[in-house]
């Protein structure tokens, strides 16, 4: 059964043009550091690597909202939203760190961020970009997950990231569904390149 799922995953990868990530194209990809599983085939689905990857995204988001909530830029309902987002991202970080541990990996320390948070609009611009990126990042990985529990966890977070993105899109006068009827996935290499902008 596991072999079948594995082969199915490889087939999905071929269809996707190896764009799902874990392909070893960039030095930042977390496959080996997260799992020590260097013996895997290049591009093969690797749940631990995927969890480590989305954990990194969540760590950056949690850091953003912690700083934003303490910045003094937000009041009233907007502050309540920022605090709710912070609390939910913290829960995502904890859940994913636990999942990574169960998969035999070790949660990396939260990366140092470089977030230019000079005013309300600046914070929201970073937040909306990260949340839409996060939703796309999860979507880019969901068909590559082998373990059903891990998939259920990532699905339950993916749609919350989409909710966050939507709340921020609306706050900034943007469309709630910027890509229309279907979410657009993003591959790991692209996401990590964007994330790099916010890392020290």
């Amino acid at each position: 059964m596991q072999r079948r799922a594995f082969l199915a995953g490889l087939g999905a990868l071929a269809v996707a043009g190896c764009g799902g990530g874990g392909g070893g194209q960039t030095a930042r990809e977390p496959t080996e550091t997260a799992t020590g599983a260097g013996a895997r085939l290049p591009g093969a689905p690797d749940d631990a690597a995927t969890v480590a990857y989305v954990l990194k995204l969540e760590q950056v988001e949690a850091d953003l909202y912690r700083r934003a909530a303490d910045s003094g830029f937000f009041k009233g309902r907007e502050l309540a939203l920022i605090q709710a987002l912070r609390d939910e991202e913290d829960e995502h970080v904890d859940m994913l760190a636990g999942a990574l541990h169960r998969l035999g990996g070790k949660a990396p320390a939260a990366p140092e961020t470089r977030l230019a948070l000079e005013d309300r609009d600046g914070v929201l611009r970073v937040a909306v970009r990260l949340e839409n990126l996060g939703a796309a990042a999860y979507l880019g990985q969901l068909d590559r997950i082998r373990d059903r529990d891990v998939l259920a966890t990532l699905l339950s977070i993916h749609t919350v990231e989409a909710r966050h993105a939507t709340a921020l899109n609306l706050l900034l006068g943007k469309s709630p569904t910027p890509n229309g009827a279907f979410g657009r996935p993003e591959d790991m290499a692209t996401v990590l390149r964007v994330l790099d902008v916010y890392l020290a």
Binding site: L139, D143, F182, G183
Partner: peptide, 17 residues
């Protein structure tokens, strides 16, 4: 899985909006 995941993201966006 891929196709339905792309849909559920939009359902979540609808729900939030």
């Amino acid at each position: 899985k891929r196709a339905t995941a792309a849909i559920v993201q939009v359902e979540a966006r609808h729900s939030a909006a």
